[in-house]
C-alpha cells in the first residue's frame, strides 16, 4: 500500500466512526457543540499519534505474550499527559469534555490501531496511519456535532445562525439527539453508498 493511502484510508474508506463504527461513546456524548468535537478530536489524535509512534518503535522489544497490557500502559500514559496539558492550557474544554478525556484509554480505535497497524509497521507509516485515523475521527466528530449544534442550539461554533425569533430543537443537544444524529448520518451514508454501487 502506498504511503498516501496509509493516510487517506482513515479519512474515507476506513473512517473509524462512520465506516468501522468504533469509538461511539465520545461521538454521542460530547458532540453537543462543534468546539467540543474539535477538542475531543485533537486530544484523540494526539494520543493516537504518540502511542502509534511509541508502539512502532518498541514493536521488536515488547514480548508477544504481554503485548496488550504493554499497549494499554503506553496509551494510558499518553492519555494522562494529554489530560494534564488540557487541564493546564484549555480548562474550559477540559471541563466540558470531563470524564471522556481519561476514557480515551478504552477507546477501541487506539488499541485497535496499535494491534493492527503500529505493531507491524515502521514509524513513518505508523505516523501517517495515526494522522489519517485521527483526522478521520475528528472530521466525523465535527460533522455529528455540527448537525447537533446547528439544530439543537441554533449556533455554529458558538456563532448564532438564525434571528432572535428562530426556534431550535432542544432535543438535539439532549442525550437522545446524539443517537438521532449519528443514526441518521449513518443511514444517509449507506444510502449514498448504495447509490454509487
Amino acid at each position: 500500500m502506498s504511503l498516501a493511502k496509509e493516510f487517506s484510508k482513515g479519512i474515507v474508506s476506513d473512517n473509524p466512526l462512520f465506516r468501522l463504527t468504533l469509538g461511539m461513546c465520545p461521538s454521542l456524548a460530547i458532540t453537543t457543540s462543534v468546539a467540543n468535537g474539535i477538542g475531543m478530536g485533537a486530544a484523540f489524535t494526539a494520543v493516537l499519534l504518540a502511542s502509534n509512534i511509541a508502539i512502532s518503535l518498541l514493536r521488536k522489544i515488547i514480548p508477544d505474550s504481554i503485548r496488550i497490557p504493554c499497549y494499554i500502559v503506553i496509551i494510558a500514559s499518553f492519555v494522562t499527559i494529554t489530560e494534564m496539558v488540557m487541564h493546564a492550557y484549555a480548562p474550559a474544554l477540559f471541563k466540558s469534555l470531563g470524564i471522556f478525556i481519561p476514557l480515551i484509554v478504552v477507546n477501541c480505535i487506539i488499541l485497535g490501531r496499535a494491534e493492527a497497524f503500529a505493531s507491524k509497521n515502521g514509524v513513518f507509516a505508523s505516523v501517517l496511519d495515526a494522522l489519517g485515523m485521527g483526522v478521520g475521527y475528528t472530521l466525523a466528530l465535527v460533522i455529528v456535532s455540527t448537525v447537533r449544534e446547528v439544530l439543537g442550539a441554533g449556533t455554529f461554533y458558538g456563532i448564532p445562525l438564525g434571528g432572535a425569533s428562530a426556534q431550535s430543537a432542544l432535543i438535539m443537544i439532549l442525550p437522545p439527539g446524539g443517537f438521532i444524529a449519528l443514526g441518521c448520518i449513518l443511514a444517509l451514508l449507506n444510502k449514498l453508498q448504495n447509490k454509487t454501487r
Binding site: I171, P175, P176, G177, I180, G183, L186, A187, L188
Partner: peptide, 22 residues
C-alpha cells in the same frame, strides 16, 4: 428500508428509548 438496516435503526431505536428515559 435498506439504508437504515443494522446500525442506523439500532441508534434510532436507542434515541426513542432515551427520549422515554428523559
Amino acid at each position: 428500508p435498506k439504508s437504515l438496516q443494522g446500525m442506523p435503526i439500532s441508534l434510532i431505536t436507542a434515541a426513542l428509548m432515551s427520549v422515554a428515559f428523559l
